[in-house]
Computed example of a mutant assay.
Amino acid sequence: MPSAEAILPYLQRIDAKRWYSNFGPMLIELEARLAARFARPTLACTAANGTQALTLALLALNAKPGGLCVMPAWTFVATAHAAIQAGLVPWFVDVDPVTGVLDADHVRARLAHAPGPVSAVIPVAAFGQPLDPAPWARLHEDTGLPVVIDAAASFDSVSAAPVPTMVSLHATKSLGVGEGGFIASEDPAFIDRFRALTSFGFMGDREARFAANNAKLSEYTCAIGLTALDQWPSTRTAYIITAQRLRVSLLHTPAVRFQPGWGLDWTSSTCVVALPEGATGAVEASLKAQGVDSRRWWGLGCHRAPAFAHCPADFLPVTERLAASTLGLPYFADMDVDQVNRVALALAQALG
């Protein structure tokens, strides 16, 4: 996260303007800079957090309440919370065994076997990896189903949004503002409705046209975001360097596999590795005994959370395998060589 010293010039601009929230100049600048990162003409609209952004996107797409929302079981619980807040019921479907994400053709085939009417689909980009939106745009065109991509951790790898795409700006993400997120879309009408849903249903006046929320970002949060964007080239370089150090330090531990392209073509704020099948529990315990923390970022799968026990789920063998064979390692932009080596040595020891 940016330092107070780095943010100060933006805070001084806020003082000079005396505009503190409600789509001020900082927010307009932040959204323009976020949208400019996309390859094709795209609009970006911010929200209070990524979960709110997913929920409001489903509402903006008029996803029919009470229907099923197709999503991977291999995801963070926020995906399911967002669907429920939008009046939908999560339907957990298994992911591809190679990519670890939903496959559009598999979803298309499963629609005929859905345990009820389907209202929307949320594909998830796992742990920041790139996700091709084109198959999901085709699914939307062919079926008419609303599709929102949950790319919460994919700030570095998202470059197109033919269907609405959510990116989180939480403090744990590679570009963070504390709490925040944004939706990217090539559809101006969708963005207009989404923006109104973040602001009481107002559309350029003070008339509430439909039930909505208050999910705006303040100018102070946008000041942090603008500073983080200023620093992004150096922040990204630091993440890449740390990732490559981890890769090199584990060259002689072939049982550990990184996500394809991680630290080479793209980066994120987490390091999630694949381990020998079923090894996560033992490795986690060994690392803990050596004083090295780790994370099962998505637990045993979203479908295992008590909050979603009532939700329908497909047969999920790939999700179950991933839950028992992946682990998040310590990883941060300013991680030094000694820390990298300590993690690598502890992991090698854990794997015997």
Rank of each mutant, 00 (worst) to 15 (best):
V98Y: 05
V158Y: 02
G128V: 11
A114D: 13
E219Q: 14
A285D: 14
I224Q: 11
R206F: 11
V163L: 04
D265M: 01
M26T: 07
S268L: 09
G180L: 02
G278V: 01
I122R: 08
A126N: 05
P135D: 00
F315W: 13
K173Q: 15
C69I: 00
A126K: 10
L58T: 08
Q231S: 09
G204E: 09
A152L: 07
A243N: 06
L251W: 09
F210T: 11
N22A: 13
Q85D: 14
Y220F: 15
L345C: 12
V248P: 04
V148A: 08
Q85L: 12
A16N: 09
M203C: 10
Q244M: 11
A4T: 13
V292H: 07
A333Q: 15
R257K: 12
P276W: 12
A60H: 03
P254W: 04
F194E: 06
P164L: 09
V118G: 03
R236F: 04
T46F: 03
L34H: 00
P117L: 12
A137M: 01
S157C: 04
V101P: 02
T227R: 03
I191R: 05
I28D: 11
N49Y: 10
G263I: 08
P130E: 07
V272R: 11
E186K: 10
V95E: 02
A309K: 07
I240D: 13
K64G: 05
A6E: 13
G291S: 14
E5I: 14
R257H: 09
R195A: 15
D105V: 11
W19T: 00
P25W: 00
H303C: 11
A223L: 04
V107E: 02
W297D: 04
V147A: 04
A47M: 03
D94P: 08
A255P: 03
A152V: 09
A120C: 06
G291Q: 13
Y220K: 11
A53Y: 00
L59F: 07
F182C: 04
F308I: 05
A60L: 03
V340H: 06
A125Q: 08
R257C: 03
P135W: 05
A120R: 02
A171I: 13
